[in-house]
Amino acid sequence: MSFQFRIDISRCIGCRACEVACVTANDLDPSSARNWVKFLEDDGDVIGNTTFAPYLCHHCADAPCVDACPTGASFKAADGRVLVDKDLCIGCGLCVPACPYEARYVAPDTNKLEKCTLCEGRVENGQAPACFEVCPAGARSFYEVVEIDGEERVVSVGDVNAIDDGHELIALTTSAVDPAPRLRFSGLPQDLALLQEKLPPQGGGSEASMLWRNGFGKAVGGLGVASAMAMGAMIGMRMLRDRAEKVALQEMEEQMLAEKEEVADNE
């Protein structure tokens, strides 16, 4: 079972009900921003093209935030969700700049990583995630991909509009940056063009992600495997509480050793 979700940016009217629904459904601090709506404008013309751009964590199949986490707190669930183990998370923030979509942040009130969880509890209950459910513009659709009679079928979840209007769907990727995001966008061509131009990974980007790409990443990388592993292991060890987490760390370590051997073998 896995999920697909899409947002039609040309339907969005920027009302931000999705932002509010996320805060209430997940009992968050009012300043939380697990999803958000941006307003994008053409820089050129006096009164140029504009679009609203709602988005959230893309729950990538190849999530770089999972790789970047030193404790294993950032993980991928079997159903495709990219999630955070709240006990393993130490709030180091290394994963934050790893996300090409700027979907992660460390919450000041909990010092833990905050991001979209695709409302697990609600979905298990047959409802769509809160932001998908509320949208009065019908801009968001959420589907489960389930197996029925041996066949993969897409079924809509909750009472969310199905946007089966034949519009082109795009993903926000480039040739250099493609973490296999699950989120797709549709809309008018000029709105999609603005989306690709202005949003990361192509356009703009916050200071944090620029730091990652230019300097910060190299700085951390220079620590070396041993110290990185040692650091990770030490940090991880402090967080271990039960066998389950111990196994997770051991598996990660074994995996890395195995791959190192593989690299060594190939040399």
């Binding site: 495997v225 041993a226 890395m256 190192k260």
Partner: peptide, 18 residues
Amino acid sequence: FIQFGLAGSAGAAASILF
């Protein structure tokens, strides 16, 4: 992750065997 952590291992960290 390994590439990011750079090549050349100085040996495994203290073994964490569980």
